[in-house]
C-alpha cells in the first residue's frame, strides 16, 4: 500500500507537468486546427532560456517566468512567420502536420548544433521534503503541482467566464460565425498561440526540473506523452487534457512501481489505444464530431 501511495504521489507530479503542457497543446489545436508537433521544441527552447538565466544567477522560478514569456513569443513567432503563411498559401491540414514536424526538426537540431549533445541541468535545490502519509514530495515538486493547479484553473476560468475566452471557444467551434459576431479572429488566434507557448514554457521548465537532466531534444521526446494525455482526454478540451494528464501520470508511475520502470510509457500508450478503440473521441469529450473547446 505504501508503494502504491508513493507511486500515486510521483504520478501527481508527472500529471501536473503533463497537464500544463497538454492544456497548452490542446487549446491551440482546438482554436487553429494545426496539429503542432513543434510544441515540444518550444518547451525545450524556453527551457534553455531558463537554463541560461538560471546559470547567470537567477532564481529558477524567476527563470521559469521568463521562459513562459519567451515560450509565448516563440510560439507566436512560429505561427506568424511560418504556419500562417503556409495556411494562406493553401496548404491543407495534413500538409501542415508535415510543416510542424519540419519546424520541430530544424529547431531541435539547430539547438543541438549550438549547445552540443550534452546533458544540462538547472541549479535549483529540491528543497525540504514534505510527508503526507506515504506521500513524500519535495518543496520544488509541491510548487510545480501548485503552479499546474493554478494555471489550469486560470485557463478554465478564462475560457468559461471572460469575453475573450468565450470568443476563443466560439472561434474554435465556428470561425465564420465568430466573425459574424465581430470577433477579431486574427487577434484571438494569435492569443491562443501565445497562451499555448506560455504553457509550453512553464511545462518545459517544470519537466526539466523534474527529470533533472535534459538535452536539446528532451521536449520533443516528451511531446508524445503530452499528445497521449490530450488525445485521451478528448483533443480540444482543456478540461479533458487535465483529466487525461492525471490518468497518464498516475498510470505510468504506478506501472513503474509495480511492473517495469522502463515500460511505464508503454502502459500509458496501451491505455490510450485501448480507450480510443472503445471511445474514438477520447474519454471526456461528449460530442464526438463537435469537439473544440467543449466546456
Amino acid at each position: 500500500m505504501a508503494v502504491f501511495i508513493s507511486a500515486v504521489g510521483f504520478g501527481v507530479v508527472t500529471a501536473a507537468i503533463l497537464a500544463i503542457s497538454a492544456v497548452g497543446f490542446t487549446l491551440q489545436f482546438s482554436v487553429t486546427n494545426v496539429f503542432n508537433l513543434a510544441f515540444g521544441s518550444v518547451m525545450t527552447l524556453s527551457g534553455f532560456v531558463a537554463y541560461w538565466l538560471n546559470h547567470a544567477g537567477l532564481n529558477i522560478w524567476v527563470a521559469m517566468a521568463a521562459a513562459a514569456v519567451s515560450g509565448g513569443l516563440i510560439s507566436l513567432a512560429i505561427n506568424e512567420a511560418i504556419y500562417t503563411p503556409f495556411i494562406r498559401h493553401g496548404l491543407n491540414l495534413f500538409g501542415m502536420v508535415i510543416v510542424t514536424i519540419s519546424v520541430a526538426v530544424i529547431f531541435d537540431h539547430g539547438l543541438q548544433a549550438a549547445v552540443g549533445p550534452t546533458f544540462f541541468s538547472y541549479t535549483a535545490p529540491a528543497g525540504k521534503a514534505f510527508r503526507f502519509a506515504d506521500f513524500v514530495l519535495t518543496r520544488q515538486e509541491l510548487i510545480i503541482v501548485g503552479i499546474a493547479v493554478l494555471l489550469t484553473i486560470l485557463v478554465q476560468v478564462a475560457l468559461q467566464y471572460t469575453r475573450v475566452g468565450k470568443a476563443m471557444r466560439g472561434l474554435a467551434i465556428n470561425a465564420s460565425l465568430a466573425r459574424a459576431c465581430g470577433v477579431p479572429t486574427r487577434g484571438v488566434i494569435a492569443l491562443a498561440w501565445f497562451v499555448s507557448g506560455v504553457l509550453a514554457g512553464v511545462g518545459g521548465v517544470a519537466l526539466f526540473l523534474d527529470i533533472s537532466t535534459f538535452t536539446a531534444t528532451t521536449g520533443s521526446e516528451f511531446l508524445i506523452v503530452i499528445i497521449a494525455a490530450a488525445v485521451l482526454g478528448g483533443i480540444g478540451s482543456p478540461r479533458g487534457a487535465v483529466l487525461g494528464a492525471l490518468v497518464v501520470g498516475i498510470v505510468t508511475e504506478v506501472g513503474a512501481a509495480y511492473w517495469n520502470a522502463e515500460l511505464k510509457d508503454v502502459l500509458a500508450f496501451g491505455v490510450l489505444i485501448a480507450v480510443l478503440l472503445v471511445r474514438p473521441q477520447g474519454l471526456f469529450s461528449r460530442l464526438a464530431t463537435e469537439r473544440a473547446i467543449a466546456r
Binding site: 471557444r169 467551434i173 465568430a178 459574424a180 459576431c181
Partner: peptide, 23 residues
C-alpha cells in the same frame, strides 16, 4: 473584412452552422 461588418450595423444568420453548438 467580415468581422467588421457588425460594427457597421450588418448582421446575418447563415443557413447552416448558425449557432455555436458547444456553447
Amino acid at each position: 473584412p467580415s468581422n467588421r461588418l457588425i460594427k457597421r450595423g450588418l448582421a446575418w444568420v447563415p443557413q447552416v452552422d448558425d449557432v455555436f453548438t458547444t456553447l
